[in-house]
Amino acid sequence: MVPALSRVKREQLRKRRNNLLRRHNEFWLLYGMKSWLIMELPDGQIFTYHSHPDVLPPSKEDMNTRSKPTVVRTPRDYNSTAIAQSVGRDLPVPYAPIRENKKWDALAQHLKNYRRTVS
Rank of each mutant, 00 (worst) to 15 (best):
K102D: 11
P69F: 01
K103V: 13
R89M: 13
E26R: 15
I46W: 02
V2H: 00
W36Q: 01
W28H: 11
A4T: 06
K102M: 12
P69C: 03
P3E: 09
I98M: 10
A84T: 01
N101S: 05
F27G: 04
Q45P: 02
R10E: 02
N25K: 05
S86H: 03
K112T: 10
P97G: 01
Q12F: 10
E100P: 00
V8W: 10
Y78N: 11
L13R: 13
K15C: 10
M63Y: 07
V71F: 10
E61K: 07
D43K: 12
M33A: 11
R16E: 14
R115E: 07
I38R: 14
I83V: 11
K34Q: 12
L91F: 01
W36F: 04
V118I: 11
P69S: 02
E100N: 13
L107G: 02
S59R: 02
V72A: 09
V72F: 06
S35T: 08
E26A: 15
W28E: 10
K9N: 09
L37H: 02
R66G: 01
T48L: 09
E26H: 12
V72Y: 11
V87L: 10
K103N: 12
A106H: 05
Q12A: 08
G44F: 02
L30V: 08
N113H: 07
P57F: 03
R10A: 00
V55Q: 06
Y31G: 14
D105R: 05
N64E: 14
R7I: 01
A4P: 03
K68R: 15
W104A: 15
H52C: 09
K68G: 03
A96T: 14
V93W: 03
L29I: 13
K60A: 15
D105Y: 07
E26D: 13
R14T: 12
P57S: 04
S119P: 00
Y31L: 15
V8K: 10
A96G: 07
R116W: 07
T74F: 13
T117D: 06
E61Y: 06
M33Y: 07
A96Y: 03
V2D: 00
E40A: 13
A108V: 08
Y31D: 14
P58A: 07
G88S: 04
S59F: 01
R10S: 05
H24D: 07
P42S: 08
N101F: 01
S67E: 02
E11K: 12
H24A: 14
V8I: 15
N79E: 15
A108K: 03
S35M: 12
H50Y: 14
A106Y: 01
